[in-house]
Simulated assay, not measured.
Amino acid sequence: MALIFLSPFYIIIVNSFKTKAQLFTSTLAFPKSLIVDNFKDAYAELDFFNSLFHSLIITIISVVVIIIFSSMAAWVLERTRSKISNIILMIFVAAMIIPFQAVMLPLIRLMGKLHFLNVPGLIFMYLGFGVSQAIFLYHGFLKSIPVELDEAAMLDGCSKLQAFWYIIFPLLKPMSVTVSVLDVVWIWNDYLLPSLVINKPNTMTIPLKTFFFFGEYTKQWNLALAGLILDIIPVVIFYFFAQKHIIKSVTAGSIK
């Protein structure tokens, strides 16, 4: 199973060091010589630092906003425990099965009328598409946190917001990391929504820039694969730092 899942990484890494002729001759073979110029050309074509900056800004702000709003909404829905809160939760869960393509054109038309087709508008739309899954995950995790903690904080003089922010939210750290990993991978790799919203070359994300390696008459696979390696490095680094928290959240959920 490990070999199956690692095989795409092998293909990407091996072919990123080949010339275009070598790549089409044998995809699985090792390169005859390491062509480092592929990375230099891909770096220049991607306008890497500018694209990386915009990808980081959009991804980080979107994930932070999703975590804050989703955790607060899930806390209120879990602690209320009424028919209305159950209905609202079911609406969020049902929204998870609606494909983006079904609402794509009406959404873009509406955002265009509101003059919201820009980076802040993109972040707002990511919030709308990301909260359903995050609320579902947070709601399940909050069931393992005793309501007595909320009541004790209230007795000590905390407001509801203070009780959540200082007592409950720190306990949600394992699930927050899990939600952030899921959303970082989704938003970082997303092409379709940014392609509909971002139309200025100087604000394009890395996936949008990577698309320019594939023209109408030619496809620069060697440069594209080198660019993909540059693209995935930030996500891989983030995952390695966050993986211990993901394991904690999984084991905590299984025990409780």
Rank of each mutant, 00 (worst) to 15 (best):
F49I: 09
C158N: 09
L89T: 02
E45I: 10
T205K: 04
N118S: 15
P31T: 06
Y239L: 12
I84D: 02
K244I: 01
F169Y: 11
F211E: 14
I123T: 06
W188I: 04
I232M: 15
N189Q: 06
K32D: 12
F48G: 07
Y138P: 00
Y43S: 13
I108W: 05
Y166N: 12
F69R: 01
G215V: 02
P170W: 08
I246C: 03
P99I: 04
I168V: 15
G157D: 05
L122K: 06
W188E: 05
M96I: 10
T19S: 13
K209Y: 01
G215D: 00
M1I: 06
I68K: 04
A2E: 07
P99M: 08
S159R: 03
V235C: 09
G215Y: 03
F124D: 01
D190S: 09
V179W: 10
I206A: 07
E78Y: 14
F5P: 00
H245F: 15
A102Q: 07
K32C: 02
A163V: 04
N189Y: 02
I11N: 01
N50D: 09
K248Y: 15
L107A: 15
N189P: 00
G215K: 07
L6I: 07
V235S: 08
S249N: 11
A242W: 10
I167V: 13
I206C: 01
I58H: 06
L52S: 06
I35F: 13
T205I: 05
K173Y: 15
L77F: 13
R81V: 05
F238L: 12
F164Y: 08
R109D: 12
I145M: 04
S33D: 13
V177Y: 11
L208A: 05
I247S: 07
A94W: 02
N222Q: 09
H245A: 13
I87T: 11
N38G: 05
S159V: 04
S51T: 08
G140A: 06
V76W: 10
I232H: 02
S16D: 09
I11D: 05
N38M: 06
F92N: 03
G128H: 07
V177N: 05
V147R: 11
L52G: 03
M96L: 12
I57L: 13
V181W: 12
K40R: 12
M204K: 14
V184G: 03
P99Q: 03
D47F: 09
F212V: 10
A42N: 04
L192I: 14
N50A: 15
W165Q: 13
L56D: 06
I167A: 07
R79W: 07
I58V: 14
I35D: 12
S26G: 05
V184P: 00
I246S: 01
A134I: 04
Q133N: 11
F53H: 06
S180W: 12
F214M: 10
R109N: 10
F39P: 00
M154S: 14
A153G: 03
S254A: 13
L208G: 02
E78L: 03
S16E: 08
T205Y: 08
